[in-house]
């Protein structure tokens, strides 16, 4: 089982879209795949049309009253399951702080699922918090979507710094350019001269209306626009991520 965290401190940069589309592509190839929507906003759950509700909430999971296995929901796609978001996740930080070994609790919760899934995608909330620390520790790879702008690159540096501070192997961090707009000179310049201190994938996700339309169709891009530029970009991204994970 490989755990892939889709993470960034910033919001609205295509994190959830990446988690949903990559998970769909993995499942479509036959890999047993799970998405855990850790963001209380519940965007991933929304895309899969699953109610953002977990019985007994995050507290139930942390106290052991419920296991992750109990709250898994099947999506409309073969081999693809989801653990939905829950409003209680907004307090997950505080709740984690109250339990022992608080930084590895998510890793511990995921452990029993190891034989059941090939890939688990964590759709992380946009923050630097104990939840982020947990997901960074649990993940085999941390996928950081980055808009090719100066401020986004600064955020990427902060994430690397955060990892270093926590003694987390920062080579886990894999970034790709998201919402890339070829018409913008700055975007092109940054893509041509990517940062050297972190792994940047060749594949990038374009700024495309098909990605936004995921919210209209409530489906992954390859389902409603299989031959679109965005779908092809996600496929290329998934191929590259797979080769990094192996």
């Amino acid at each position: 089982m490989k755990i892939v965290a889709c993470y960034n401190v910033k919001g609205g940069i295509g994190k959830t879209a990446a988690a949903v589309n990559l998970a769909f592509l993995a499942a479509h190839e036959g890999a047993r795949t799970l998405v855990w929507d850790l963001d209380p906003q519940g965007a991933a759950s929304f895309y899969f049309r699953i109610k953002p509700k977990v019985k007994k909430g995050s507290k139930g999971l942390l106290t052991g009253k419920k296991t992750l296995e109990d709250v898994v929901k099947g999506t409309d796609y073969p081999n693809l399951d989801l653990i939905p978001a829950d409003f209680s996740y907004r307090n997950l930080d505080l709740q984690l702080d109250e339990v022992k070994k608080s930084d590895t609790r998510i890793q511990k919760l995921l452990k029993p699922l190891a034989s059941e899934y090939d890939f688990i995608f964590l759709d992380c909330p946009p923050s630097i918090s104990l939840v982020s620390e947990n997901t960074l520790i649990a993940a085999d790879a941390v996928i950081v979507p980055t808009i090719p702008t100066t401020l986004s690159l600064r955020t990427l540096d902060q994430i690397v710094e955060f990892c270093n501070k926590l003694n987390i192997d920062h080579t886990k961090i894999i970034t790709f350019f998201s919402m890339m707009d070829n018409r913008k000179k700055l975007h092109k310049q940054i893509v041509e001269n990517p940062p050297q201190h972190v792994r940047v994938l060749d594949a990038s996700i374009p700024y495309a209306s098909d990605v936004e339309r995921m919210g209209v169709y409530r489906q992954p891009v390859p389902v409603f626009a299989g031959n679109s530029r965005a779908a092809k970009a996600y496929r290329a991204l998934w191929e590259e991520i797979k080769s990094v994970l192996h």
């Binding site: 190839e29 036959g30 090939d118």
Partner: peptide, 21 residues
């Protein structure tokens, strides 16, 4: 147990890409 897209009828185990299966 398993549901895999496969373009042709598999003959040997090596025709299956998924490692566990």
């Amino acid at each position: 147990i398993c549901e895999l897209p496969l373009s042709r009828v598999p003959k040997f185990s090596k025709d299956i890409n998924h490692q566990a299966y």
